[in-house]
Simulated scan of single mutants.
Amino acid sequence: MIKHVFLTGAPGVGKTTLVQKACEALLSSSVGVEGFYTEEVRERGRRVGFDVVTVTGERGHLSRIRDGAAASHGRREYTVGQYVVDLPSFENLALPLFRNVGAADGGSRKVFIIDEIGKMELFSQSFIRAVRQTLDSSSYTILGTIPIPKGKPLGLVEEVRSRGDVKVFAVSKENRDTILQDILAALQESLKHAA
């Protein structure tokens, strides 16, 4: 039985856009939605980093391009390519979203958005624990995104990909405009079985 739905695909193919469209459709059909997206931050047409944005619109830094003048002030610095990950900012915004996961509310099942489980987010051990707890929760269906396998496998990503209760949709330029209904159908099926 499918419990969670994840999207995978090349960077920039439209995974986050599909998650946002699915979220809008769920909210308009009165399904409870919580969680966060990852959005590009651009300045003068150039990508300078990523922000975490909650479903309710709160925003915080996830990463920024390394600024030569910025020193790490003795803190451990987490980097992915040219980006320096702002772990405290990410954890301060994302981790509180998971606080209700352990509590059984006896109400209807909710959809929890996790966009994305990627290299930057996986520097946080607390995030990894929270995702695992949500995957095992009986009150949440996750709609999330994971990167396509490339280079060294990411432990939690491979764990998600290999779970029997996870349906993974591969998003491509060819199907991104037509796959939304399939994603919503899988989510509705998951929510129906949970009810």
Rank of each mutant, 00 (worst) to 15 (best):
81 G>W: 05
65 I>T: 10
20 Q>P: 00
126 S>T: 07
29 S>V: 02
57 G>I: 04
126 S>A: 12
186 A>I: 07
25 A>Q: 14
84 V>D: 11
172 S>T: 15
54 T>A: 01
177 D>Y: 13
68 G>C: 05
64 R>Y: 07
76 R>N: 00
179 I>W: 00
66 R>G: 08
137 S>E: 06
99 R>K: 08
22 A>M: 03
59 R>I: 07
63 S>R: 04
86 D>I: 03
88 P>Q: 02
70 A>Y: 03
21 K>M: 12
108 S>W: 07
78 Y>K: 05
119 K>T: 10
15 K>P: 15
69 A>I: 06
87 L>C: 11
193 H>C: 09
87 L>D: 13
124 S>H: 05
153 P>Q: 08
101 V>I: 14
140 Y>N: 04
188 Q>F: 01
31 V>A: 04
159 E>S: 12
170 A>N: 15
93 L>E: 01
120 M>N: 07
26 L>E: 05
79 T>F: 00
160 V>K: 03
46 R>H: 13
42 R>H: 15
38 T>F: 09
161 R>A: 10
125 Q>A: 02
170 A>T: 15
101 V>F: 02
148 I>N: 05
34 E>V: 08
68 G>L: 10
168 V>H: 03
62 L>N: 07
172 S>I: 09
58 E>C: 05
36 F>D: 14
70 A>C: 04
22 A>C: 03
55 V>Q: 00
171 V>G: 09
116 E>G: 05
184 L>F: 01
19 V>P: 03
21 K>A: 06
64 R>E: 10
90 F>D: 04
45 G>F: 01
193 H>P: 09
190 S>K: 00
149 P>F: 07
86 D>Y: 08
93 L>M: 01
34 E>G: 09
187 L>I: 15
163 R>D: 06
114 I>G: 11
14 G>L: 05
20 Q>W: 01
32 G>N: 10
162 S>N: 10
113 I>H: 00
149 P>E: 10
99 R>L: 12
66 R>C: 07
90 F>Y: 08
4 H>W: 04
73 H>R: 06
143 L>K: 13
34 E>I: 06
142 I>C: 07
43 E>W: 12
12 G>A: 10
143 L>D: 12
15 K>E: 14
66 R>E: 13
155 G>Q: 02
3 K>Q: 15
180 L>R: 00
88 P>I: 04
